[in-house]
């Protein structure tokens, strides 16, 4: 069994419209190791969501290949071991969180009783106990984010992919998400997440990758970044230095 859970090899994605074409990813290579928390950073439009969509086969790389658990990412069976929280949390308004998660649990072949137990546990984990049986049509953005996180964990994923997991959450909920990610890491789950919240990334990531204009600019250990040149610096400083240098070139 390989130690690398996720491998991207020379992945390029080009969006082609009628009047334009845009290289969203350019020869992106990356690997994420088992059990690590990998923070995926970059300015707006850098290609973070495109990378995540490529991993999940929602769009197709123009060139290159992606492997998840040593299998090509396009095979539905690899998604049996993946949990995904999308950037924009939208779910069926006519369902309750419990019904939504029951349906998703069915896709993973989880038995009804196990699923019910699991759903109660997940609702408690994200703080949705009282709303588990309420239709989602009146849910706030923050509540939808909580549903989104809970549904991503329904299959006890070995690889959890989170796209901006804390956007729209209040500080208490953010802290909770951070704690959940730390707990998952302690249990051996690999977490790959994109975020603009550099302070959070700094607190929970083992490694980070910085993407700019579709290119991977750097991949580094969090510890190395924080102790660079012998004195402590913040991830924010590091990130800004890198991006500024890139833009000046």
């Amino acid at each position: 069994m390989s130690n690398e859970v996720l491998i991207l090899k020379e992945v390029s994605v080009t969006y082609r419209g009628k009047a334009y074409s845009k290289d969203a990813l350019r020869n992106l290579s990356l690997s994420v190791n088992r059990g690590e928390v990998f923070g995926f950073l970059g300015p707006n439009g850098a290609g973070k969501t495109t990378t995540i969509k490529s991993i999940l086969n929602l769009l197709y790389p123009t060139q290159g290949s992606i492997f998840v658990f040593d299998s090509p990412s396009f095979h539905p069976r690899v998604r049996q071991r993946i949990g995904y929280m999308p950037e924009i949390a939208q779910y069926y308004w006519y369902l309750t969180p419990r019904e939504l998660m029951m349906m998703y649990a069915g896709f993973f072949g989880i038995k009804k009783n196990d699923a019910l137990r699991k759903i109660d546990g997940l609702c408690a984990l994200v703080g949705l106990e009282k709303e588990a049986g309420v239709l989602m049509k009146n849910f706030s953005k923050g509540m939808m984010q909580k549903v989104s996180l809970a549904q991503a964990l329904i299959n006890d994923p070995e690889l959890l992919i989170l796209d901006e997991p804390t956007s729209g959450l209040d500080p208490v909920a953010r802290m909770k998400v951070r704690d959940i990610i730390k707990d998952l890491k302690a249990k051996g789950t690999t977490v790959f997440f994109s975020s603009h919240e550099l302070s959070e990334v700094e607190l929970i990531s083992d490694r980070i990758g910085i993407l700019n204009a579709g290119r991977m600019v750097t991949v580094a250990d969090m510890k190395d970044i924080l102790s660079q040149k012998g004195h402590r610096q913040s991830l924010e400083r590091y990130f800004l230095d890198i991006i500024t240098k890139e833009e000046n070139q």
């Binding site: 929602l58 998604r79 049996q80 999308p86 939208q90 779910y91 896709f107 992919i161």
Partner: peptide
């Protein structure tokens, strides 16, 4: 349009 397809297709479905 409602983007519910993302979470749906991230499940083990073709």
């Amino acid at each position: 349009a409602s983007k519910t397809i993302y979470a749906l297709l991230a499940k083990p479905l073709s």
